[in-house]
């Protein structure tokens, strides 16, 4: 069985977001890049499965659509435990473009289980996994919070309103995973970091494809107003501010 993890290279979640070129582009300066946290959890679950099903899982491959600046992030995935990596050498322009590129590689490599994070924490589109399933005509389970192989059968849990669904699926299939899929990401070991240098990172050229979307501009949320403290005895002032300033009553 071969598992593929689709990983995005995203800014660290503590990054102070800034825009340049008249708010039309994200400012990369000084940004630390990481594996998208949802994708990292997916990788963690795949590694747990490999540990628990010795021999059943032949290899775990991470696939990324990105330029060479994504290589350190990909190497980290290899250090954590992925066996090999494929980078599709193209700027990840929009979800459709990314899914198109991933679909080509996934078809060629004949993976059995494909895991995507539920969203990437940069543009938060939440659409690549679903598009990928459509393009490949593979069964897919969204919002998966549990994935296991029991007696050779795939078991997936999916969050629904007020409860969970327990699903089985044939292979190959795509799981779009969310919180709960793994407890917490693994920390790479010294041995893992050393061996990551020598694990295969294959770079393939992108297939033809154009993005559907372009970004006109970005806007930061308005900064929160400072907290006002009002004397507990001064109810009149509180009502006045809620009515005239906050305009909530």
């Amino acid at each position: 069985m071969k598992i593929c993890i689709c990983i995005s290279n995203v800014p660290d979640t503590t990054t102070k977001i800034k825009f340049v070129n008249n708010n039309t582009a994200f400012d990369n300066a000084g940004v630390q890049w990481i594996i998208n946290p949802w994708d990292e959890l997916a990788l963690t679950r795949a590694l747990d499965l490999k540990d628990a099903n010795a021999g059943a899982i032949e290899k775990i491959t991470v696939v990324n659509v990105g330029l060479a600046d994504a290589d350190p992030t990909i190497r980290k995935a290899l250090a954590i435990g992925a066996d090999n990596a494929i980078r599709i050498n193209a700027e990840p322009k929009d979800a459709y473009f990314i899914a198109t590129q991933l679909a080509e590689v996934i078809k060629k490599e004949a993976f059995d289980i494909i895991l995507c994070g539920i969203e990437s924490c940069d543009y938060n589109g939440s659409t690549v996994g679903g598009m990928l399933a459509e393009m490949l005509a593979y069964p897919s389970v969204s919002s998966a919070s549990f994935l296991d192989i029991q007696n050779g059968q795939i078991i997936v849990k999916r969050e629904i309103d007020g409860g969970q669904e327990l699903l089985g699926t044939k292979l190959p299939f795509i799981a779009i995973v969310q919180k709960g899929i793994a407890k917490e990401p693994r920390i790479p070991s010294m041995r893992g970091i050393m061996t990551a240098k020598t694990k295969p990172l294959q770079v393939v050229e992108a297939v033809a494809g154009e993005p559907f979307l372009s970004y006109n501009s970005f806007e930061l949320p308005k900064s929160k107003a400072a907290c006002k403290k009002i004397d507990p005895e001064n109810v009149k002032e509180l009502v006045n501010l809620l009515h005239n300033e906050a305009k909530v009553i």
Binding site: I187, P188, S189, M190, R191, I193, M194
Partner: peptide, 19 residues
């Protein structure tokens, strides 16, 4: 120790991390 920090500078031929 499981992550290899206690022997991180020792050569891998002696089971260290080789850092």
């Amino acid at each position: 120790s499981e992550l290899g920090f206690l022997g991180m500078m020792t050569h891998p031929k002696y089971d260290g991390g080789g850092m």
